[in-house]
Every structure is written in structure tokens, then in C-alpha cells.
Amino acid sequence: MKVSIYRYNPETDREPYMKEYEVDTGGKDLMVLDVLNLVKEQDDSLVYRRSCREGVCGSDGMNINGKNGLACITPLSLAAPGVLDGRKALILRPLPGLPVVRDLVVDMTMFYNQYEKVQPYLQNNTPAPAIERLQSPADREKIDGLYECILCACCSTSCPSFWWNPDKFLGPAALLQSYRFLADSRDQATDERLARMDDPFSLFRCRGIMNCVSVCPKGLNPTRAIGHIREMLLERAV
């Protein structure tokens, strides 16, 4: 099969280019990461991130035939119609909207900065009991669909609002994590958390495009979380 990969080495290339490879997959429905590993055996200068190879570490987010996803859990049959049977090339590009370091590796600094801005840690100033803090199953259920985020950046880098204002708009990943703590019955910093987002950019640049929902490899829904934060801000205002 044909694989077309975005290549750029800052030491030798003046500009990026697409390089074509021919890979023998034996007709198998491999994962995109397996295909990348086969290409690297041919050409060890190809660069990409990978770690767990099972969709939980979030290293190998990339743009696969136009859609962001994790290479390790995207089989060729789902990459795009025609890729598996060789009618179409597998096209791999770095996540959009972030500076490219080399080939498929992007500089994630802006993404991590937004994550850190939401103070992504539990805040509770009452003295801790000798055992765990109690939480009812119903309260615990409120953070399902939020805590599972793996910080792969597929969502934020598919979001046009994040492309425009990656420094001022927190982006879907960071907002999902913000809500993860707002929704946690053990957290006491609700007001401070909301106050920090009460400006035209941090949260309100979300235009409900929902690219984040359609690409999230863990099936999470940042748009819904953003909606909940909006409601909380509204209630706080009246």
C-alpha cells in the first residue's frame, strides 16, 4: 500500500514536503502505528511519538487522512475508505495548529500551558480525614466522561477557535479538565475556577463547532462540558 507522510527536518529542510512510501502490510488491517513502524524500518529518519500503543497514553495523536486521531487505535479500515484495499494512500500529517518540531512531532507547549492554566488539581482546604474523603457513587458518576482524558490534543488541534487564539482560548481539552474539577464533589474552588474563565476568550470563544467531539479517541464530549461551565457562569452572574 501507499503511504504519504509529512516530512520536515529543521536542520536540512527549508520547507516541509510529503514523502511517499510503499509498505507491504500483507493485506492485513493493521493499525496506523504498525504501518509507521514498518516505514521506520525502511527509513529510520522518520520521526513520530509513540508509547503505550493501546490508546491510553496519548502520544501518537496525528492527522490521518484529514481527521485527527490516535495512530495506535486507528485501523487502516477506519483511516479512510479505500486505504485498506490500496485504492487510496494513507496520508499522515502532524496535528494542525501547533508548530512542527520535526515530521509528525509537534511542539505541545501551548497545549500544556492551557491545561496548567485551569489549575488541574483538586483543591480542598479542609483538613483531610484519617481515611478517604467520602463520595457517593452518584457524585462520583458526575466525573465519568471527564477524568478519562489522555491529553492527546486531538480535540484542541481540530478546533478553529483554538487555531485562532491558542494563547487566550483555553481549548476543549483544558476546559474539559476544568469541568472535571468543577464537577468533583470534593473540590472547593468552584468560584475561583469560574472567575478565572469569566472573560471573552477563555471559554466564550467556543462556537459549538463540535470538532472536538467528533475526533476524541476516548469518546469524550468537551462541548457538553463547556456547556455546563457556561451554565455555571450564568448562574454565578445572576
Binding site: 483538586l122 480542598n124 474523603r133 457513587p137 462520583r140
Partner: peptide, 12 residues
Amino acid sequence: HMGLPFSRTEEG
């Protein structure tokens, strides 16, 4: 106490 989201029993 750090915030790890453990699953819970009915008693919390």
C-alpha cells in the same frame, strides 16, 4: 486526598 477518582461503594 490528592484527588484520585476512585470508584465508590454505596457508603461512599
